[in-house]
């Protein structure tokens, strides 16, 4: 059965979607079969990083949760060429982008249990090694479910006082749900910050292992979610660290 990796943060804009998409590529470059699920149904966006836009008639997660499309019909192969050469594969389950569909989902809701079952059906049908769940920031029914079913939770934060406070809440929730493994990822670390001090503050705040400290990067800002840094700028320190995180996770918890 596939391992489930949930990528979450208490506050928005920490870099979850960029991290999720790049980790998916890093895993697939190691030959893994990976699915990325956009559970940020209120404000989806990770499809952009894969250069994918659902065309008319192509199904999204909403079509499974609120209608009768099978989850396999909602999974689209977005494997970049260089990843194909490494014999990995990436499927994306995007969320609907049009306002009417988002409003309908928020208005009518859906059964979260259907999301649970969908992940496991997809993992069997596509013989997946890994399922990566990109989440909405904060705490809601989907993020609680993703946390509860994860083999590993990556908690992303910036070295910002509001993030420190909010992340404590999300970690407490994860611990109440007995998540088997949690790793902290600090993203957008300014060059002026002393990494050792940040490491120590994070370690003493949460008592959870640190998976990676990722630099604030002008190149990532300029890329502006227009592609996958691990493929476009493989030698960039951010990309190197993301690949290092992927290796660490495979060696320790996935």
């Amino acid at each position: 059965m596939a391992h489930i990796l949930a990528i979450h943060s208490f506050r928005g804009g920490t870099g979850k979607s960029n991290l999720t998409a790049n980790l998916a590529a890093a895993f697939a470059l190691k030959g893994k079969r990976v699915a990325v699920i956009d559970t940020d149904l209120a404000s989806p966006g990770i499809h952009v990083l894969f250069g994918f836009t659902p065309a008319a008639g192509q199904f999204t997660l909403n079509d499974h949760l609120q209608a009768d499309a099978s989850i396999e019909q909602c999974a689209h192969d977005v494997t970049p060429r260089s990843v194909q050469q490494a014999h990995g594969q990436i499927w994306l389950v995007p969320a609907a982008m049009d306002g009417d569909r988002i409003a309908r989902l928020l208005r009518e809701g859906y059964e979260v249990e259907k999301l649970n079952d969908a992940l496991f059906t997809l993992s069997e049908k596509l013989k997946l090694d890994l399922v990566l769940i990109d989440t909405h920031p904060g705490i809601n029914e989907e993020t609680l479910l993703s946390t509860a079913i994860a083999d590993c939770l990556l908690m992303v934060m910036r070295p910002d006082s509001q993030d420190y406070l909010g992340t404590a809440v999300a970690i407490e929730v994860a611990q109440r749900l007995d998540v088997p493994a949690i790793r902290m990822v600090v993203n957008k670390l300014p060059e002026l910050f002393d990494p050792q001090q940040v490491r120590e503050r994070v370690a003493s705040s949460y008592g959870v292992p640190i998976g990676a400290l990722l630099p604030l990067s002008d190149d990532l800002l300029t890329l502006a979610s227009g592609g996958l840094a691990v493929l476009m700028h493989p030698d960039h320190p951010w990309s190197e660290q993301v690949r290092g995180l992927a290796s660490h996770l495979l060696e320790t918890v996935l």
Binding site: M1, V112, N116, D178
Partner: peptide
């Protein structure tokens, strides 16, 4: 049961039982 409801349950063993019934 909602996920928020599950999160609020006590004791921890009850949450663990219900959590174990998720996934497959």
């Amino acid at each position: 049961l909602s996920m928020a409801g599950l999160l609020a349950l006590e004791p921890a063993e009850l949450r663990r039982l219900l959590k174990s019934g998720l996934r497959r």
